[in-house]
Amino acid sequence: MKTRQWIESVLSLPSFGWLVLFFAVPTVLVFALSFKSAEYGGTLGTGWTLEAWRHLANPAYPPIIWRTVWLSLACTALCLLFGVPVAYWIARLDPRWRHRVLLLVILPFWTNFLIRIFAWRTLLHPDGHLKNLLVHFGWAEPNTQLLYNNGAILLVLFYTYLPFAILPIYAAAEKFDFTLLDAARDLGATKWEAFRKVFLPGVRIGMLTAVLIVFIPALGSYAIPAVVGGPSSEMIGSKIVQRATLDRNIPHAAALGAFLTLVIFIPLGIAAFLRWRDRRVTRRSHGLTPGVTP
């Protein structure tokens, strides 16, 4: 037992080291930098100060923070709304087709992320194909603005993160026992009730993973608002980049980044709690509680 634990510790050292070096240390650095003062020209001042954190109270920030949060939430909701039915559909497909459709889901990853966003800019451009098509069918006015607004950001966020939502939900759906839906129907549930009361609880861990995988990166996105968003649809990510590269005010950028990290801990904490509760139930079910007799 002890040897085994020792071997396990040794084997996990490389990944542990990796995490410390590229995750823990940078996070601590960002938090540390946020308590420094900034000099002109991008250098750091001496001593510690709360100036950068106080700067977060800048009246320009709350709308940006609010926009970042609601765009990320909306994106997560949309990804779930589309991801769950798609995952359900793929899991019920004939196995021969299942892998082909899964390949289609991950096909966009073959193309560079930035190229795909720029492609959206071309599509949504006032003279772009999508715009022309919509106008042609009378679904849009010639002066409708498709680009440089919150809608464009949400659309591209949704487009980018949908595969990340489908995959974990599909992984859960693939293990789901579909005769349970028959059982629910047999007992009087409508199709929708069976889906809601039996399928959704059955894939909840997959949905939880999808929420984390979509919501957290969406909060920190900056390339998408930079390319398809306008000056009035900035997100926190855009501001961090602006503070670090244009203003050359590293402490301000660090404070914003640290703030974002703290915000991310909220859903992460909730997810960790739910998983812990779930594992406790499973562990009990494996007979570790006395009094379970066959």
Binding site: T179, L180, D182, A183, A184, D186, V198, G202, R204
Partner: peptide, 11 residues
């Protein structure tokens, strides 16, 4: 119906 593999709802 009583299903072959019970089909009890695990959650």
């Amino acid at each position: 119906t009583v299903f072959q593999n019970y089909a009890l709802f695990p959650h």
